Each structure stands twice: as structure tokens, then as C-alpha cells.
Deep mutational scan, measured.
Amino acid sequence: MASQGTKRSYEQMETDGERQNATEIRASVGKMIGGIGRFYIQMCTELKLSDYEGRLIQNSLTIERMVLSAFDERRNKYLEEHPSAGKDPKKTGGPIYRRVNGKWMRELILYDKEEIRRIWRQANNGDDATAGLTHMMIWHSNLNDATYQRTRALVRTGMDPRMCSLMQGSTLPRRSGAAGAAVKGVGTMVMELVRMIKRGINDRNFWRGENGRKTRIAYERMCNILKGKFQTAAQKAMMDQVRESRNPGNAEFEDLTFLARSALILRGSVAHKSCLPACVYGPAVASGYDFEREGYSLVGIDPFRLLQNSQVYSLIRPNENPAHKSQLVWMACHSAAFEDLRVLSFIKGTKVLPRGKLSTRGVQIASNENMETMESSTLELRSRYWAIRTRSGGNTNQQRASAGQISIQPTFSVQRNLPFDRTTIMAAFNGNTEGRTSDMRTEIIRMMESARPEDVSFQGRGVFELSDEKAASPIVPSFDMSNEGSYFFGDNAEEYDN
């Protein structure tokens, strides 16, 4: 783990906690998980779902989305002020799938948001429990990260689609708070800032007046979040320049895209947490497990152990491969979309394939898809080993990566060399080191050039047997250095459309 220093740990961010010791953190995270579980059980009762239907990941996603929508204050306010045809701002819903006479049927349900809020609060001892809501947002974000390569979004903001390893959390809503900021990748933060800068260039009043003052505060806050992700002084200094700019424009845009590229080699610290679907927490609570009393951590053995003992089902389209669908969801559960496939294969105990080789589309089923041909199958979400999630980018030494994705962002704290394609990355730096950030740029390029592919990161860190909950005997895996390590390699994943 990167030293926490003055930073709060993510469990504290996750639970809005002030400084807590490890036991208190485990208890408050457990409380959050228990609340999600209780809410899910109650919703299944309301909807009269069978046990099997309640364990269907598509039903879980609909129920999670309903509660997130019920608590989305800004959108609710907007919907009330701008009524649109056929949208009731006070209601929320989605597809629920039921097994009827041996076939899967889709039923569109509609609930009062007020009623959903009441059920959620009741499951969370009367609190709004925003930490639990954020947790579900991060699960949705991790699922998107594993399912889609955001080529269009990258290109629109002047970045290269091969930089997708920097895009963790790119679909997280803005209201996801400190826990959300911690899991956002460098590219995601750059993209958010670039969008602001572009608006400022096109709209003279963007930075002016009372609204402009708020915009400015948001801009500086985002700059500080991004600065905190960088691990070298030169990158941090460049972020200070971007933040202090009187009138952010093209120079800042250039600096930010430069920094994003540099992060492929001088990786930023991005938190990883295993956020599971509500249909995993519900049955665990129903079986009598007391998360608050037992304590829970999002970055240790607990999620692995929970998945070892969970039964989750998914709808499967006619030509999809259930094992591939399982891999997709497994990666999402562990926030591992940008991790090295060699490491993932070792931990999972079966070969993890790149996205383009998977015969599976996303987990969600569109409303126009034919239910007649839908089957369902068990998702295999178990693992051979477990490993500690990392909050750091690993040290800054790398190795060759593949054509589709030119770097990785480690999820697990496991000893290995970190793949990246130096030639491709360095070719993108057209040696432009003039301007006010020239000395920093020169320094950053120097550090990137001296990074050695064969150097090892996370020295001495290994994986653990599932029986080793105290992480007492690390097993340090050895990897084939020459092997392909990137998930979005030469990829044809669908595009994420909101």
C-alpha cells in the first residue's frame, strides 16, 4: 500500500469516517454492505422474486439502478423543472426478469421514488447511507470498465484509444464523492478537466460571474484530485501550473494530454476495490451473516471469500459463452479491467482472455432483445487465490505491452514486471518541450526514458491461498515475461453508450 500519510484510507472515504482504527473501519464497511443486503432482500420480497430470480444479476442491476435514481437529487430536480413526455419524475423502474413456464419473461416495473427511498433508509437504520449508494455506483463503473473500451470518449477529448488503461471510473457520476474520486484513473480526471476547458473556450461566460466562481472551485478541486494521483514531483508541479492558470485554454489542454500520456509509464495511484452486485450481499445477509459484527474490507480476502460461497446467475444470449460472461463479471467484481492478464489468470486459476476474444456482450439486456431465446446460467466467480488490492500504480518500471492497449494499471499487489510499449508511448511525445512547463516536461520525458521494462514492481508481494486469511504465506508467482498482458488488445469491444 502506498503510505497513507495525511490521506484517509478508502474504507474511511467509503464510510465518510473520520480517523478510525482498522477494526472500526471493518465494522463501518460491514455496516454499509449489510445495509445493501437488507435493502436487496426487501426489494425481492416487494417484487415477489423467487430465490433464483433474486440471484439473477440482471435483476440486481435494475434494483441497484432504481435506488441510485431515487437518490439522484440533481436529476430529480431537473426532471421536475423540465417535464418530458412519458417520463414521470417521481417514478423509477426498469426490467425485471421472471421464469414463467420454463421461459424467461421481461416485466417492466415502476415504483415511486419516495417508496424506494423509504425501503433503502429502513434497511440502513434510517440513514441515507450515501456510502452504500456510492458502492453500487463503483460496481456499475467497474462493470462498464470491463465491458467497454471507451474509444470515442478518448478520441473526443484528444487522447489515444490505446490509453484505455487510464480510464478507470470514466462512467462514474460526478456525485460519487471521495470514494469515487479515489477509483478514477488519470485519464478519467484528464477527460473531465478537458471537457471543462473546452467549454470555457467555447463559452465566454463559463468562468464568469457567480456560476463561474463555482465552476472555478470545481476545476481547482479536480486538479488537486489529479495532482494527488501522480507520484513524481515534476508531474505534480505541472498540475500546479494547470490549476493556477488564470484562464484555462489550449496550453492547459496540451499540458493535460501530455500528463495523461506520461501516466502510461509514470503511473498514478488509483484505488481498486472489489464492489459486488447487491444480489451477492442480499443472500449472505439472508443466511444470517452479520457483516457489521464480522467486519468487512473491500481490499482484502473478504470479497473473494464471499464470491467463493455465492451463487449468481445471468441471462445468456443464444451465441454467448457462459464462461466468457463469467470472466467479464469476475473482472468487474475485482475492479480488474486494466490489470495484467498474466496476473489475473494466476489468481483466477483459469486463463483470462483479452476482451476481443470473449464471445459475450454486456450483462444488460436491451429492451428490444428477444426473450424467447434467452437461457440462463451460473456465473463462475470463484478464484484459485486471493491478493491484496493496490492503491498505487506500482513502481515506475515497465515491460512490453500489446498493440491495442499500451500499458496497464495494476489492481493487485503482486510481484511482476509491468508491461508497456515504450516505443509507441515515446513516439507520441513530439519533443515539444517549450513553453512555461518546459523544464517539467524535459524531466518527465527523462524519467520515462530511463524506466526499464525488466524491473520488478511490488517486490516480494504474492497471492494467498483462500485458507490464508491473515495473509501469512505469500506465494510469489513467476510470469512468462514475453507473454501478452493487455485486456483490450487489438480490440473490438462495443462502445459504451450512456
Rank of each mutant, 00 (worst) to 15 (best):
3 S>R: 10
6 T>Q: 06
6 T>C: 06
8 R>K: 01
10 Y>T: 01
11 E>A: 08
13 M>K: 12
13 M>Y: 02
16 D>F: 02
20 Q>G: 03
21 N>L: 08
21 N>M: 01
25 I>H: 02
27 A>K: 12
33 I>E: 01
35 G>I: 03
36 I>K: 09
45 T>S: 13
46 E>T: 04
46 E>H: 14
48 K>I: 08
50 S>L: 07
50 S>M: 11
50 S>A: 14
54 G>M: 09
58 Q>R: 07
60 S>Q: 03
60 S>P: 02
64 E>H: 14
65 R>Q: 02
68 L>I: 15
72 D>Y: 11
78 Y>P: 05
80 E>L: 13
83 P>K: 14
85 A>F: 01
87 K>A: 01
87 K>N: 10
89 P>T: 06
93 G>T: 04
93 G>F: 04
96 I>C: 14
96 I>H: 01
99 R>L: 06
101 N>D: 14
105 M>F: 03
107 E>K: 10
110 L>P: 13
110 L>Y: 06
112 D>W: 11
118 R>E: 02
124 N>Q: 13
124 N>H: 14
127 D>L: 14
134 T>E: 06
135 H>C: 15
139 W>Q: 03
140 H>V: 15
140 H>Y: 14
146 A>C: 08
146 A>F: 11
148 Y>V: 05
151 T>F: 02
151 T>N: 06
153 A>Q: 03
155 V>E: 03
161 P>R: 07
169 G>T: 05
174 R>A: 03
175 R>T: 11
176 S>I: 00
180 G>N: 07
184 K>H: 08
186 V>M: 15
186 V>K: 05
187 G>I: 01
187 G>N: 04
190 V>S: 11
194 V>K: 01
194 V>E: 02
198 K>I: 11
199 R>M: 01
203 D>N: 12
207 W>D: 03
207 W>S: 06
208 R>Y: 11
210 E>N: 11
214 K>L: 14
216 R>K: 12
217 I>V: 12
220 E>M: 12
222 M>P: 01
224 N>W: 09
226 L>Y: 07
229 K>F: 08
231 Q>Y: 04
231 Q>R: 15
232 T>L: 03
232 T>G: 04
235 Q>V: 02
236 K>Q: 07
236 K>E: 13
237 A>H: 13
238 M>W: 02
242 V>F: 01
243 R>H: 09
246 R>N: 06
246 R>M: 14
249 G>F: 01
259 L>K: 07
259 L>T: 06
261 R>T: 05
262 S>T: 11
263 A>G: 15
266 L>H: 07
267 R>N: 06
272 H>F: 01
275 C>T: 09
275 C>A: 10
275 C>M: 02
279 C>F: 11
282 G>W: 14
283 P>E: 12
286 A>S: 11
286 A>G: 15
286 A>W: 06
287 S>G: 10
288 G>R: 09
292 E>Y: 11
293 R>D: 13
298 L>I: 10
298 L>N: 06
299 V>F: 11
300 G>W: 10
301 I>Q: 10
303 P>Y: 08
305 R>L: 10
305 R>K: 15
306 L>E: 05
308 Q>V: 14
316 I>H: 02
324 H>S: 12
325 K>Y: 04
325 K>D: 05
326 S>H: 04
328 L>M: 15
330 W>N: 03
331 M>C: 04
331 M>I: 15
336 A>W: 03
336 A>E: 06
337 A>N: 06
337 A>K: 03
337 A>I: 15
341 L>E: 01
352 V>W: 00
354 P>W: 04
354 P>F: 12
360 T>K: 11
361 R>T: 08
364 Q>N: 14
364 Q>A: 12
365 I>E: 03
365 I>W: 07
367 S>K: 07
368 N>A: 08
377 S>L: 08
380 E>R: 00
381 L>A: 02
383 S>D: 07
386 W>C: 11
391 R>F: 12
399 Q>N: 07
401 A>N: 04
402 S>W: 02
402 S>C: 15
402 S>F: 10
403 A>L: 08
406 I>Y: 02
407 S>R: 07
412 F>H: 06
415 Q>L: 06
420 F>N: 14
422 R>Q: 11
422 R>K: 09
428 A>S: 11
431 G>F: 08
431 G>D: 03
432 N>F: 11
434 E>L: 04
434 E>V: 09
450 S>M: 07
452 R>V: 08
456 V>G: 03
458 F>V: 06
464 F>S: 06
464 F>W: 06
472 A>C: 01
475 I>Q: 10
476 V>H: 01
476 V>S: 00
477 P>R: 06
477 P>C: 04
479 F>K: 05
480 D>F: 04
480 D>I: 10
481 M>A: 04
486 S>Y: 14
487 Y>E: 05
490 G>D: 06
491 D>P: 01
491 D>R: 03
492 N>G: 01
497 D>S: 08
498 N>Q: 15
